[in-house]
Design a protein around this nucleic acid. Structure first.
Length: 216
DNA sequence: ACATTAAGTGATT
DNA sequence: AATCACTTAATGT
């Protein structure tokens, strides 16, 4: 396996990094490609090297709601639980952009937990971070108005790729926020009127965040 | 030029 | 904020 792994995880013991390189499988995903869907059993857990994964919740009717993003150095808490409990996934994971990850087989999980302190910390941190993300998602759904939810999502997406363009259609944003396309269009129009963004076909330009003009 | 897909809008609930 | 019905604009073939 490539040295790409070593450079990303300096907090791991060298021996653990060796093991990850030995038993992990490098996987490259294109934007929009699906890694996991509800009901799917997973037998390996992903560690993200570059890019990002979008984690979505699905209701019985197939309506989706955005939960959180996983980025470099993250792992999927859902995979950890599902793997060890041998239960199917309850979320959907889609590559938000071209993404590279290492798939580590489940068997190694317990083994490494006892062998490497850094792995244990890594796993705990993964849970903690996802828990925080989940709370944020709940706040968003329960307490925030739609216009604020859209604005936050846009900023998050822009920050993800460190670009001022967000390549999403109104329909895609609507799906992620589980609202209708028309509502997204209207609220984007409002944000545009406030000078925060500029809308184009298939992409949205972030103009200003907290009074500062976005560069790049 | 034509078809398709994305975006904009008024009216209604 | 959701839904409907329709228009307009951008893009692909």
């Amino acid at each position: 396996m490539q040295p790409v792994t070593t450079s990303q995880f300096t907090e791991f013991e060298p021996r653990l990094i060796e093991e990850i390189e030995k038993s992990g499988i490098l996987k490259k995903m294109g934007a929009g490609e699906e890694l996991m869907r509800p009901g799917m059993y997973v037998r390996s857990i992903p560690i993200i090297l570059s890019g990002s994964l979008k984690i979505m919740r699905q209701d019985d009717g197939g309506n989706e709601t955005f939960l959180y993003f996983l980025t470099k150095g993250d792992t999927c808490a859902m995979s950890l639980t599902c793997c060890s409990a041998n239960r199917p996934s309850t979320v959907r994971a889609v590559a938000e952009e071209p993404t590279e990850l290492i798939m580590v087989p489940v068997e190694k999980l317990d083994q490494w937990m006892t062998m490497y302190p850094s792995w244990k910390i890594f796993v705990f941190q993964a849970y903690q971070r996802r828990f925080d993300d989940m709370l944020e998602a709940v706040d968003s759904l329960a307490f925030r108005r739609m216009d604020e939810r859209i604005w936050r999502l846009l900023k998050k997406k822009a920050a993800l790729q460190e670009k001022r363009f967000v390549y999403s259609t109104h329909q895609e944003l609507a799906d992620e926020l589980s609202t209708s396309r028309e509502v997204v269009t209207r609220l984007l129009k409002k944000l545009e009127g406030m000078g925060k963004i500029k809308t184009h076909r298939n992409r949205i330009e972030i103009i200003e965040v907290r009074g500062e003009t976005v560069r790049k």
